[in-house]
Design a binder for these strands. Sequence first.
DNA 1: AAAAGGACCTGGTGGC
DNA 2: TGCCACCAGGTCCTTT
Length: 272
Amino acid sequence: MPELPEVETTKRGILHNLQSKTVSKVIIRQTRLRWPVPEHLPETLSQQSIKTIQRRGKYLLFEFPHGHLISHLGMSGSFRVLPADTPIKKHEHIDLIFQDNLCLRYHDPRRFGCLLWTDQPIEQHKLIAVLGVEPLEADLTGEYLYQKSRAKRVAVKNFIMDSHIVVGVGNIYANEALFLANIHPTIPAQKVSLEQYEQLVKHIKQVLTTAIQQGGTTLRDFTNTDGQAGYFQQILHVYGKAGKPCSCGQAQIEKIVIGQRASYFCPACQPI
DNA sequence: AAAAGGACCTGGTGGC
DNA sequence: TGCCACCAGGTCCTTT
């Protein structure tokens, strides 16, 4: 489920509850996530405390004194902070247990997520070093996307979802931002104009910012909800709305598949 | 070098 | 009710 807003909300929730707390114990019930969970994690993390947590794209980077715990939620991962004696439910694979009877519990039915450890500088890690710009930072501009796309024939939707170009734009928000920028999702990236990329960037930033603000409203419940973020309740214009009338009143939302992902657009608002 | 497709998993839904 | 095909918010890796 997680798109960038949920990852950001998760980061804030964990930090709020666990910053500077010391790990007393780590319990691994399932090592088979996207990559095997390192077996040395209990010894490595024990008696270390969380200095801070950064978000890079959809990765959560827990900084400890001796290195970083790298986590990605994949399609179905979530973290919750719970009392350490809370009974285990299905798919709750990992516990980091802290002082004060607090437990950071990782839940992931599909197991596409990961928990990894590195003691090298985090920006040099294989998964992190290759990432593109942050969507909410100043280095994502229309000009940047325009320059990066000049030799790219892939659909613009795939282009903006490529984490080597820009991180954190998932399927929902790619669809929504393209709609708001009036850009048809299948147009080859190299055919999109500078002006269109400027509009697109404006809407990517806007839609993610709004969603994070909404996700923030669930933050106070971080310890006792099951991680359902508020961002999904926001008003979506096209995502999941195939066959429904567009707000423009001129056409119905269409669904097509691009790069094996469901894509939604309004044929009136987003001309080829 | 770029693009396309496969791979990794489980759970929910809708059709028959 | 049961069975089955299909779909899902991600992204790395291999093949073309």
